[in-house]
C-alpha cells in the first residue's frame, strides 16, 4: 500500500474534531478534499499518526451572503464555488480564478478551505483571498477567532492556524459598484500550478477615476505577495496604459522569486510585471463597463 499506516477518524461534529485535534496534537492531519494531502501520503512525504476526515462533519460547507460579505464554508467543494451564481455575481474575482485551479476531477473533491490551509505558494486561492483582503475564521477549543488575510499566510505551506485549530470559513468582501477584476496566470499546461498568477481589483468613481485597487501575485515567493506600492501608482488616476506600466514596473521590482525546475527567478519577475499590466487593463475595462 502506498500511504503509510495511520489511524483514521471520521468525526461527526466540529466539537468532536477539535477534541481529536487536542488529543493527537501535531501528530494529526485534517483530511478535507485530499487533493494535496493524499498525494503527499502516497509519496510518504507526510506520516501522520492520525488522519481526521472532515467530510462527515456537518455545517462546514455552503455559500452564504452576509451584509457586504460572502461567507464560504471551508469544506465547500471548489466545483460548487465554480458553479455558484452568487459567487459569479458577488465575488467575480473568485469566480474567474476557480476554473484555473487543477482540473474538474480535482475541483469535484478539492475544497476552498483545504487549498487555503495547504497554502501552496503557487496556488490561486491564497492570491484571491489576499487581493480581496478576506477574513479567515478559525475555531479552537477557546472559541472562534478571525484572521486577516495579511496575517494568515505565514510562509511556505504555513498558515496562522494552530495545530489544535480548524479553519471553518472564509469571508470575502463583495465587489462594490463600478468595480472590475481579473485573475490571469501563466502555467505550462492548463490546470498546472501557476508559474506566476496575478489577482487584481480596480474600483472607479462616477467620473472614472480609480478610487481603490488591489494586486496580489502568486508563484513568486513562499506566500502571496500583495503589491501596495504598485497600487499607489494607479489610485487617484484615470486608468491608462502609462499607469498600468508603472504599476507593472513596481510589481516586477518588488518580487523576489526563486528559480526552480519550471522557471527562473528573472522570468518570474518579468512575467509578474507583464501579467499585472494585462490584469489591470482588463479589470479597468470591466470596471468602466460596470459604470455605464
Amino acid at each position: 500500500m502506498k500511504p503509510p499506516p495511520f489511524e483514521y477518524f471520521a468525526p461527526a461534529s466540529v466539537k468532536e474534531t477539535l477534541d481529536l485535534l487536542r488529543e493527537h496534537g501535531d501528530q494529526a492531519k485534517l483530511l478535507a478534499g485530499g487533493q494535496s494531502l493524499v498525494p503527499m501520503l502516497n509519496f510518504r512525504l507526510v506520516r501522520p499518526g492520525a488522519l481526521i476526515d472532515l467530510n462527515g462533519v456537518p455545517g462546514l460547507d455552503g455559500i452564504r451572503e452576509e451584509p457586504g460579505m460572502l461567507r464560504i464554508g471551508a469544506m465547500t467543494r471548489q466545483r460548487a464555488v465554480e458553479r455558484s451564481a452568487v459567487v459569479r455575481e458577488r465575488c467575480p474575482l473568485l469566480a474567474e480564478a476557480m476554473p484555473q485551479i487543477g482540473h474538474v476531477q480535482i475541483r469535484n473533491r478539492g475544497t476552498i478551505g483545504g487549498s487555503l490551509v495547504h497554502a501552496d505558494p503557487a496556488a490561486e486561492l491564497p492570491a484571491v483571498v489576499a487581493a480581496l483582503g478576506g477574513e479567515l475564521i478559525v475555531r479552537g477549543a477557546a472559541g472562534e477567532r478571525t484572521i486577516a488575510a495579511a496575517d494568515f499566510f505565514v510562509g511556505y505551506l504555513t498558515t496562522a492556524v494552530a495545530a489544535d485549530e480548524l479553519l471553518v470559513a472564509v469571508r470575502l468582501p463583495v465587489a462594490p459598484p463600478r468595480a472590475g477584476h481579473a485573475f490571469v496566470e501563466v502555467s505550462r499546461r492548463h490546470g498546472d500550478f501557476a508559474l506566476v498568477g496575478v489577482a487584481v481589483t480596480v474600483t472607479l468613481d462616477g467620473s472614472g477615476v480609480c478610487t481603490s485597487a488591489a494586486i496580489a501575485v502568486t508563484g513568486v515567493g513562499p506566500a502571496p505577495v500583495v503589491a501596495a506600492d504598485a497600487v499607489a501608482a494607479l489610485v487617484g488616476q484615470r486608468p491608462a496604459t502609462t499607469a498600468f506600466e508603472e504599476a507593472a514596473r513596481r510589481v516586477s521590482a518588488q518580487l523576489e522569486p526563486h528559480s526552480d525546475l519550471h522557471a527562473s527567478a528573472e522570468y518570474r519577475k518579468q512575467v509578474g510585471g507583464v501579467l499585472t499590466r494585462r490584469a489591470l487593463a482588463l479589470a479597468s475595462e470591466r470596471a468602466a463597463g460596470a459604470s455605464r
Binding site: K2, Q35, V38, N42, H103, R109
Partner: peptide, 26 residues
Amino acid sequence: EHGVCGACTIVVNGEAVRSCLMFAAQ
C-alpha cells in the same frame, strides 16, 4: 497514483473524481 494522470477517474455520487486520491473508508 498521485492525482496527475487521470487514469483512475471514476464517478462517485455523480461526480468524476480520482480514485487514487480517496480512501475506501470514505
